[in-house]
Structures are given as C-alpha cells and as structure tokens.
C-alpha cells in the first residue's frame, strides 16, 4: 500500500477564471432584455414576444448569447437540458422496460423511447419481431444499461424516439460516463472518435460523454454491441481512460466547449501530471489555460 498523506484545507474562493476578456461582438442578454424592435426578425429559442403589445419588441427569456442566423434570432443559454434534433447521437441509460419498448433517460425534458423494432437483432437478422422477442427484451437491454443511439424522430411534445439500427450504436461495454451540460458539446459531423491515445470517446449531443478503450477486434466493432466484454482492462489502457475522464471534467467545470480537438489538447497538457492530481484545483486550472491557449493558437494559425 502506498503511503498517502491526507490534506484538509480551507475552502478557496470559488471563482471562474476570466483570463480572456470576452470579444466585444458578443451580445449578452438576460431575461426580460429587449433584443430588437424590428418586426422582420423571426423568433427562435430563448425569445418571446408579448401578444398584447402593439410594437413588435422581441424579449429574451434566458441568459446567454444572442445568435443571429439570417433573419432568425435566438438566444443560446449557457446551460440547458437537451433539446433533441433528428440525427443527433445520444448516449442514454435504460430506465424502464415496457411492453414493446424501452424508456431511456437522456438528460432531456422527457424520457426518450427505444422501440423494439428500432434495435438490431443478434447476428444482424432481419425479421419481424415476435412475441418471444418481447419476453426476452430484458436479456438484451435491462435497467441501468447504457446505450448509444441516434435520434430517429422528435414528437410534438418534445419526446424523442431513438434507434440503434446501425452497427456503430448499441449497448456500451466497459468504460466511464461523464455528464456535462449539452450546451458544451460542439456540433460536429462526427461524434464518435477513436483518439490516437488508444481510447474511444462518444461526445454525445445530450451531454453524456462515454469513454472506453478502442477494441481491436473488427468483429466486436461490427457486433452492434450485443456481447459485452467483461475481461479486465489492462492498466495502461485504464490509465488513458481515467486521464481522459478527469480532463473532460476539468474542461466542463471551466465551461470550455468539448470536441475532439479540445479533449486531445487537454489530454496532452495533462501528461506531465499524475492522473489523480488532475482533479486538484491548481492543476486543473493549468490544464484548462494550456488547452485554451493551444486552441487560440490554432485559430489564429488558420485564419
């Protein structure tokens, strides 16, 4: 057993580190602020108008940044629950097994559903689901299991229907899950990344980030995630996964946008420290600062 010293310290003043002055083009609003009085603009998320008013004042209903895309005005809040869109990649936890579907918890306003007809059968068979399939639903996915899926449909009330009909999705095996706010996940073309350090991450749109080791076998990859590998993960690969987990948590605490580049930069900046040191305040600030400066350099390098 390694000798460890327990340190108890007084609480430090909790402050986010405002090292970079925000760009002045950014238009910040708080609830009740008037965004514009121009009637031409269409209103998007985070805005509202008063029905009874004669003038077409557009008010903000959340605190955040105003985004103008052509004639559409919306306010992006700093933290929200997940609002699903068709085609998004999500990671969810099975909450309930119902008659012909599973209820999945996805950090959104309402629980999502996964129909039995929307999953792949073992071996990739194509056939109609029978009554026997309904009874064996729990053998495939039971309460507590984590799955990766895609949003198939968004219903009127905001409920999402998921599907795992591609071999990229399915039940997730050994690894860690980190929960962050959905607004920190940058929208990209691809959300499932095989990082060069040997880990695979799924930066799901709903804020659930899954980190696991890159499985070498081609056949496992194409399995649709039915059989879960319960072999112990070797120590070096475990270290990679845990290091990534800690780095992502540091970035999320300082509200840095999460995508493959930022996660990689954070990983590289953290290599000089031990994995358990990353969670301490001093080291995590160091890592975040380094990540942001690397990202800035990349941006100015490009443009």
């Amino acid at each position: 057993m390694s000798s460890s010293t327990i340190v108890i310290k007084a609480p430090s003043k909790r402050r986010n580190n405002p090292i970079y002055a925000h760009a002045s083009e950014v238009f910040l609003v708080t609830p009740g602020d008037v965004i514009t009085e121009d009637a031409d603009y269409m209103r998007g998320h985070g805005t509202y108008t008063n029905a009874g008013d004669e003038d077409n004042k557009l008010y903000a209903s959340v605190a955040g940044v105003v985004e103008r895309i052509n004639k559409l005005v919306c306010v992006k809040a700093l933290k929200t629950r997940y609002n699903g869109e068709v085609g998004d990649v999500v990671v969810g936890r099975i909450k309930e097994v119902q008659q012909k579907r599973w209820k999945v918890e996805t950090n959104s306003r309402l629980d999502s559903t996964l129909q039995i007809s929307s999953v792949n059968l073992p071996g990739g068979e194509l056939r109609r689901r029978s009554a026997a399939d309904e009874l064996t639903m729990r053998e495939y996915l039971k309460e507590g299991d984590l799955i990766s899926a895609e949003v198939q449909q968004v219903h009127n009330d905001g409920m999402l229907s998921l599907h795992t009909r591609s071999l990229r999705y399915g039940k997730l095996g050994q690894g860690c899950c980190v929960v962050v706010s959905p607004s920190l996940i940058k929208r990209r073309k691809n959300h499932i990344h095989n990082l060069p350090c040997g880990a695979t991450t799924i930066l799901a749109n709903n804020g659930y980030i899954w980190i696991s080791i890159t499985s070498g076998d081609a056949c496992n990859e194409g399995d649709g995630g039915f059989n879960v590998n319960k072999e112990p993960v070797p120590l070096e690969e475990r270290e990679v996964v845990c290091r990534l987990k800690n780095c992502i948590q540091c970035l999320a605490k300082s509200s840095v946008m999460l995508y493959d580049t930022s996660v990689l930069y954070a990983y590289e900046s953290s290599l000089q420290y031990q994995v358990k040191e990353i969670m301490s305040e001093k080291v995590s600030l160091e890592i975040v600062n380094q990540t942001i400066s690397l990202l800035e350099r990349e941006k100015t390098g490009d443009g």
Partner: peptide
C-alpha cells in the same frame, strides 16, 4: 450497467480507481 461496475471493480483490483 454491469459493464461499468465491472470496470470499476477491476480498477480497484489494480489499485487504480476511476479518478486515478
């Protein structure tokens, strides 16, 4: 999930928990 628990238990065997 069972797989997550597996990951945690094996990590503890190796004296390396999920947060390092």
């Amino acid at each position: 999930s069972d797989a997550e628990k597996c990951f945690i238990i094996h990590g503890i065997q190796d004296d390396f928990r999920t947060d390092g």
